[in-house]
Nucleic acid binder design. Structure first.
Length: 272
DNA sequence: AGCGGAACCTGTCGGC
DNA sequence: TGCCGACAGGTTCCGC
């Protein structure tokens, strides 16, 4: 579920809530998220450490720990971090509880068990983080960079923008919305994008993501904020999930096709 | 370089 | 009602 705006929403809510909170009790109810790490080791690596702050890189959450180390999390499709008061017993999709000094929990929930949690001493240990490309909200995501990078690729724009090694943080929903706003077809090869079009794409990317963050992300089915509230950006989606409905600009029915085994939604008339 | 397919899991929805 | 296939916002690996 979560793409950049959803992860950013979670990070902005977790950061002030967790800063200075010490982890006193970690309970693993299902260990899929831990990969090869034995639950006892995961537990031992975290208990006694204190959350210093939370930040985002692409779609990854990075929890800085005192006196050292990091907890790196990825929500994949259905992961959630929920702040909760004390609980008697785990709920159906609770995977890990992080018990905090002073009472209360951060709960990692994940219906589909695709999410990942990893404790590292330094961020360089994470191969996943090392692979990530430019963050679209960073200063480096400029029209100049975008135009140059696109010129070197024949991949369709949809695929290109979803490739986390090029641009980190975009997924199926926001790529659809961004390409619609930029007026660019999802099947256009990267190298066919001219400078003026790259400028539109750069601006559309920033605008769509910033607006989605202002609206606390998009909840289609699963995404929840740390207090279990939904996002609000779903009401502003223009093409995603709207096959057959009239384009909000030209009234042409929104089209749907499959790229990379994923649904792509677009306006056949506005996006060229 | 780029693409199709599969795998990791569970839940929901539509059709018959 | 019950069963079955398709589909779901992500990432990664493998083979061509």
């Amino acid at each position: 579920m979560p793409e950049l705006p959803e992860v950013e929403t979670i990070v902005r809510e977790l950061d002030p809530a967790l800063a200075g909170r010490r982890i006193i009790d970690v309970r693993v109810f299902r260990q899929n998220a831990l990969g090869d790490c034995p639950p006892a080791e995961f537990r031992q690596a975290l208990e006694g450490r204190t959350f210093e702050g939370v930040q985002r890189r692409g779609k990854f959450l990075i929890f800085r720990l005192r006196p050292a180390g990091f907890l790196i999390g990825h929500l994949r499709m259905t992961g959630k971090f929920i702040l909760s008061g004390p609980l008697e017993a785990p709920r159906i999709h609770d995977r890990v509880w992080f018990g905090l000094a002073g009472g209360g929990l951060m709960v990692f929930q994940d219906m589909r068990c695709f999410g990942t949690l990893q404790v590292v001493d330094s961020l360089g240990e994470s191969a996943s983080l090392a692979r990530l490309g430019k963050d679209p909200l960073s200063p480096g995501f400029s029209t100049r960079w975008l135009a140059g990078a696109l010129a070197a690729s024949r991949a369709p724009l949809k695929h290109w923008l979803m490739d986390q090694t090029r641009v980190a943080g975009l997924g199926n929903i926001y790529v659809a919305e961004i390409l619609f706003q930029a007026g660019l077809s999802p099947v256009r090869p990267g190298a066919s994008v001219g400078l003026e079009e790259a400028r539109r794409l750069q601006r559309a990317t920033r605008q769509v993501l910033r607006k989605a963050i202002r609206y606390n992300g998009t909840t289609i089915s699963n995404f929840r904020r740390v207090d279990e509230k939904t996002g609000q950006f779903q009401a502003l989606l223009k093409v995603y999930g709207k096959a057959g409905e009239p384009c909000p600009v030209c009234r042409t029915p929104i089209g749907r096709l499959r790229q990379q085994q994923r649904s792509t939604f677009y306006c056949p008339s506005c996006q060229v």
